[in-house]
Amino acid sequence: MRVIGLAGWSGAGKTTLLARLIPTLNARGIAVSTVKHAHHAFDIDTPGKDSHTHRQAGARQVMVASSQRWALMSELRGAPEPALSELLARLDPVDLVIVEGFKRDAHPKVEVHRAANNKPWLHPDDPAIRAAATDTPPPGALPFAALGEVEAIADLILAHAAPWPS
Rank of each mutant, 00 (worst) to 15 (best):
D45F: 01
D45A: 03
T46N: 10
T46A: 13
P47V: 05
P47R: 10
G48P: 10
K49L: 03
K49P: 01
K49I: 02
K49E: 03
D50L: 02
D50G: 06
S51L: 05
S51P: 01
H52K: 11
H52W: 15
H52C: 08
T53D: 12
T53Y: 08
T53H: 13
T53P: 00
H54I: 03
R55G: 08
R55A: 08
R55Q: 05
Q56Y: 01
A57G: 10
A57P: 02
A57M: 00
A57T: 02
G58K: 10
A59F: 02
A59C: 11
R60V: 01
R60E: 09
R60K: 10
Q61K: 11
Q61T: 14
V62Y: 02
V62Q: 03
M63G: 13
A65R: 12
A65D: 07
A65H: 12
S67C: 05
S67R: 14
Q68L: 04
R69T: 02
W70Q: 13
A71Y: 00
A71E: 07
A71C: 11
L72R: 11
L72D: 02
L72E: 06
M73E: 13
M73C: 08
E75T: 08
E75F: 01
E75H: 06
L76Q: 10
R77V: 04
R77M: 14
G78L: 13
G78H: 12
G78D: 14
G78K: 05
E81I: 05
P82V: 10
P82G: 06
P82F: 07
A83S: 11
A83R: 10
L84D: 04
S85P: 00
S85R: 15
S85T: 15
E86A: 15
L88S: 11
R90L: 03
L91K: 12
L91C: 07
L91S: 09
P93M: 10
V94N: 06
D95Y: 03
D95M: 01
L96Q: 10
L96Y: 12
L96T: 05
V97H: 03
V97L: 05
I98N: 04
I98W: 07
I98L: 09
V99S: 04
V99Y: 04
V99R: 03
E100M: 11
F102M: 08
F102E: 05
K103Q: 11
D105F: 07
D105W: 13
D105S: 14
A106Q: 11
A106L: 06
A106V: 04
A106Y: 02
A106K: 09
H107M: 14
H107S: 06
H107W: 13
P108Q: 06
